[in-house]
Design a protein around this nucleic acid. Structure first.
Lengths: 104, 104
DNA sequence: TTGACATGCAACCAAATGGTTGCATATTAG
DNA sequence: CTAATATGCAACCATTTGGTTGCATGTCAA
């Protein structure tokens, strides 16, 4: 899970996910066209996304197609974010009470 | 939103959030007791969490209380993760089809 | 077969990151 | 008042990160 969080931390990588979300199965060169950096830099970002299992690749001849894998994101949403969301209102009202206790 | 993602990327900071989730309003020293690093290191992590608005602080005398703010996490869940979750099954079946097209 | 095209690998570099130590400041307890 | 306690600030350091350039390899098309 740590790899997923770290992978999501970089805006470039989130952009790549967005790009794949818009059009799945893009080749490396296709993904590069929207990015303002060298192909090799994009390759590195994609490697990190692959390691976090957020992107799956498939070799098709001399090209490499990239597919978005939404499962890890979903797991984070369910296992980690859900935990905090559940107590969202509680925590907020706790904070409010605390703050109000200060005022007078 | 970038700040939130970057803040969540570090396991120590997620641990701090977990700690506040378990017991809200902890003081700096209290938070340090569970961490295996110097107080100053924890301070830096907390500063990053504050900057991402994930933690709110309140001075009480010579102590500083830390409160979890779940709102940014919730926003990420809704605005960013939701987008990918929505097409989860679609993307998976796309991938499956693509993979099957390769086999024969 | 050969040239053009798509990707892979590795060395290198600047800047950011996560941590430390040392000292300063502010508040509370005795 | 004074000493202990809680936090703040700053310099410093090693490692990681995000990027580059240069060259190698593999595959398709003419």
């Amino acid at each position: 899970m740590d790899a997923v969080f770290r992978a999501l931390a970089d805006p470039t990588r989130r952009l790549l996910l967005d790009s794949l979300h818009a059009r799945n199965g893009q080749t490396l060169n296709a993904l590069c066209e929207h990015m303002d950096m060298t192909r090799q830099a994009v390759t590195k970002h994609l490697a990190i996304l692959e390691e976090a299992n957020l992107v799956t690749t498939m070799r098709r001849g001399r090209e490499k197609e990239h597919y978005l894998n939404p499962v890890p994101i979903n797991e984070i949403a369910e296992r980690w974010i859900g935990k905090f969301e559940r107590h969202r209102l509680t925590a907020l009202s706790d904070l409010k009470q605390r703050l109000e206790r200060e005022e007078p």
